[in-house]
Design a protein around this nucleic acid. Structure first.
Lengths: 156, 156
DNA sequence: TTCTTGTCACCTAGGTGTTAATAT
DNA sequence: ATATTAACACCTAGGTGACAAGAA
């Protein structure tokens, strides 16, 4: 099973209609798509893949997907291709690709929650986070820094 | 075969007796140990390892080593362990581990050649590099940025 | 109009030697 | 004495949205 990190933040963006800036040179997503995996075989090899599929027939509305492929050691592994992978879709991570923000509330939420946009905040440092759990952002930073994140138990 | 990157800079440090600062939290080396590999089998798997061995019976004088291990697909690969790896030692990369620099000329060469120490340079920007090939440092930066450096022919 | 691009000030994040304080 | 540590100013490197200019 796979658990989405920063789900509360993704939910908050998704309620407003998440937008992601796209540029010619490429640009990071925010929030970042990060997950924890559970129930892996410590002795097995896996391949982790991501892709983006259209949400509907409108343009520029990509749904991220996450794929876990078990590397089957058997010689006739091609036969089991269909059962050796699992796809996970978190609908709260869907977004519209834009070259400039369309919804001002999205802009404000990005500024409020992305540390790199701190320069555009106008509230007192103490005021923030308002509707966020205080530990959310430090946790995210720690997660981004750690190369081997420690899996903690999923909360029900 | 393996070719040491920034060999000219390593040589310059080695002539003075290279020193590397060690700290409790860990600290980067400078120059950085970077190599290009030649003659690999594109279809094979390899494991790349580094270790540090004492240069002599004096303390704190580590010689870096670089190991290339061919991942033998045969089931009895243990039998061929001795012939499936190659060790490369570049003597110009040996150094003394210190908690504070002992040789002031080493300090000055670090300041002159490490971009992160630019704040301690006292010469005109135009004066530098003095005894360095002009292209050396930009090349190093580009090398550090590139995740798949393009192998260029070894010059004799 | 509408969409896209490039530049900018303002940040985060972290790699330098210096220096003064503290161990040993 | 000598060796080590911690705080610091000064950098590199690069991720933000704002804004003005340009393209479609």
């Amino acid at each position: 099973s796979v658990q989405l990190e920063m789900k509360a933040l993704w939910d908050e963006f998704n309620q407003l209609g998440t937008e992601m800036i796209v540029t010619k040179a490429g640009r990071r997503m925010f929030p970042t798509f990060q997950v924890k995996l559970f129930g892996m075989d410590p002795m097995a090899d896996y391949m982790l893949l991501m892709d983006f599929v259209p949400v509907d027939d409108k343009r520029y509305r990509y749904q991220p997907r996450f794929h876990v492929v078990y590397v089957d050691p058997r010689k006739d592994s091609e036969k089991y291709a269909e059962e050796n992978f699992k796809t996970f879709v978190f609908e709260e991570t869907r977004f519209t690709a834009v070259t400039a923000y369309q919804n001002h509330r999205i802009t404000q939420l990005k500024i409020a929650s992305n540390p790199f946009a701190k320069g555009f905040r106008d509230c007192d440092p103490e005021d923030w986070p308002r509707n966020h759990r205080p530990s959310a952002l430090p946790l995210m930073s720690a997660f981004a820094r750690s190369r081997n994140p420690v899996a903690s138990p999923t909360q029900p």
